[in-house]
Simulated scan of single mutants.
Amino acid sequence: MLLLRAIIRPEKVKEVLDALLQEGYSSVTKMEVYGRGKQKGIQIGDVFYDEIPKEMIFMVIEDGDKEKVKNIIMEHARTGENGNSGDGRIFISPVDEAYTISTEDEGL
């Protein structure tokens, strides 16, 4: 199992979630986050924004689904034909164990 965390632009969340659901990936958790990437924030006029609002999507997926899910998110979170700075990041980490609280079942 893998934990996939995607940090994306808030305006792309619905598109990404709809695409995941259409492909059968309905189990997600999302939350509002704030941060900055390599560009260290943005300056608009005289105002400097060093914490940009984003959304983080969390998913635990089977190892064999990694490429498919990653590609869905990349395709639907990207802005413009070639993407733009600030479109986000995807992090994938191993998950050793997962349990359903109500049934105490192990796994997904």
Rank of each mutant, 00 (worst) to 15 (best):
P10E: 08
I8M: 05
N82C: 11
G88C: 08
R9C: 04
Y34F: 14
R5D: 10
D50M: 00
E97H: 14
R36E: 02
R78S: 04
D63S: 10
K66E: 14
D96W: 11
D46K: 09
D63F: 10
A77T: 02
T79R: 12
K54A: 02
V60T: 07
K70F: 15
G80Q: 05
I92C: 04
S26R: 08
H76R: 09
K14R: 11
Y49C: 04
N84Q: 15
Y49G: 02
S27N: 15
D46M: 07
Y25L: 07
I42F: 06
T29F: 12
E97D: 15
G107V: 15
L20R: 05
E51T: 05
K70N: 15
Q43I: 12
Y34K: 11
L17N: 02
K68G: 03
S93C: 11
K30L: 10
I92W: 03
I52S: 01
D50I: 00
G24P: 03
D65H: 13
S102C: 09
T103Y: 09
Y49W: 00
V60P: 00
M59Y: 02
T103I: 09
K54D: 00
I8N: 08
S102I: 11
M1A: 11
L108H: 12
S26H: 12
I57M: 03
D105Y: 09
L17Y: 00
S93F: 13
K66T: 01
D65G: 01
K14L: 10
K40V: 04
K66D: 04
R36K: 09
I101E: 09
Y99C: 13
E32F: 05
R36I: 02
I72V: 08
K68Y: 04
D63H: 14
H76L: 06
E55S: 10
R9A: 09
L17A: 05
T100G: 14
I42N: 02
D50H: 09
I57R: 02
E81W: 06
T100Q: 14
K70P: 05
R78Y: 03
E32P: 08
P94R: 12
